[in-house]
Simulated assay, not measured.
Amino acid sequence: MNKQAVNVSLLQELVGDDQVVIDEILREFHAMLASIQNDLYEACKTGQCDRACALAHKLKSSARSVGALNLGAWCEQIEQAGRNGQTGVLHELLVGFEHELAAVESWLAHWLGID
């Protein structure tokens, strides 16, 4: 498990120390990841720059708010490449994005007790 994948203390600064609230937010983020990741991957892979930009922007904001800062940084790069119409760069960014996404998903599964 990558301990750096999510810095939950950043989320705690936003919402407090109520574990039920934190878990609920992390569950919602986990569900959002499941719904966005395939669409974002497909948009990057097929050169849909506007769509990749919009999806990366949405995920970037959510990732940063829960403390998944590295994932947010990858999303920012994808967003910028999409905004600039750089389809080749979108393809290149997928490897790092997928690696960080896997780390965040592993961290969330451990935190939330999901198999």
Results as ranks from 00 to 15, higher is better:
residue 72 G to W: 08
residue 71 L to A: 09
residue 23 D to N: 14
residue 16 G to Q: 03
residue 100 E to T: 04
residue 59 L to E: 07
residue 103 A to W: 04
residue 44 C to E: 08
residue 29 F to E: 09
residue 104 V to R: 06
residue 81 A to H: 06
residue 17 D to K: 07
residue 19 Q to K: 13
residue 90 L to K: 03
residue 45 K to Q: 15
residue 62 S to F: 09
residue 46 T to D: 09
residue 57 H to D: 11
residue 84 N to L: 15
residue 74 W to I: 07
residue 38 N to E: 12
residue 84 N to A: 14
residue 60 K to I: 10
residue 74 W to C: 15
residue 6 V to S: 09
residue 9 S to P: 05
residue 58 K to R: 09
residue 95 V to G: 08
residue 49 C to I: 04
residue 41 Y to V: 05
residue 40 L to S: 05
residue 59 L to F: 08
residue 5 A to R: 04
residue 95 V to I: 12
residue 84 N to E: 15
residue 25 I to P: 08
residue 39 D to Y: 04
residue 102 A to P: 02
residue 32 M to N: 09
residue 5 A to V: 00
residue 110 H to E: 15
residue 28 E to R: 07
residue 103 A to M: 03
residue 4 Q to Y: 05
residue 54 A to S: 13
residue 2 N to R: 11
residue 21 V to F: 15
residue 76 E to T: 00
residue 97 F to M: 14
residue 20 V to K: 12
residue 71 L to W: 04
residue 69 L to F: 02
residue 57 H to C: 10
residue 23 D to F: 02
residue 35 S to D: 13
residue 31 A to L: 10
residue 5 A to Y: 03
residue 47 G to H: 09
residue 33 L to Y: 00
residue 108 L to D: 06
residue 44 C to P: 09
residue 4 Q to D: 14
residue 37 Q to D: 12
residue 4 Q to N: 12
residue 8 V to G: 00
residue 79 E to I: 00
residue 60 K to A: 12
residue 103 A to E: 12
residue 68 A to T: 10
residue 84 N to W: 02
residue 25 I to F: 11
residue 111 W to I: 11
residue 100 E to W: 04
residue 68 A to D: 02
residue 91 H to C: 13
residue 22 I to E: 10
residue 23 D to L: 03
residue 4 Q to M: 06
residue 74 W to R: 09
residue 9 S to M: 10
residue 42 E to G: 03
residue 112 L to V: 01
residue 66 V to C: 05
residue 64 R to G: 13
residue 111 W to G: 00
residue 59 L to Y: 04
residue 54 A to L: 13
residue 43 A to N: 06
residue 63 A to Q: 01
residue 114 I to G: 08
residue 34 A to V: 13
residue 106 S to F: 07
residue 36 I to Y: 06
residue 92 E to D: 15
residue 77 Q to A: 13
residue 94 L to H: 03
residue 59 L to H: 00
residue 95 V to E: 14
residue 80 Q to N: 04
residue 67 G to D: 00
residue 71 L to I: 01
residue 111 W to H: 14
residue 102 A to M: 06
residue 21 V to R: 10
residue 47 G to C: 06
residue 10 L to W: 01
residue 16 G to K: 02
residue 69 L to H: 08
residue 41 Y to S: 12
residue 35 S to G: 08
residue 98 E to R: 11
residue 5 A to P: 05
residue 18 D to R: 10
residue 81 A to I: 03
residue 29 F to A: 01
residue 42 E to C: 06
residue 105 E to S: 11
residue 75 C to D: 05
residue 3 K to W: 10
residue 57 H to I: 00
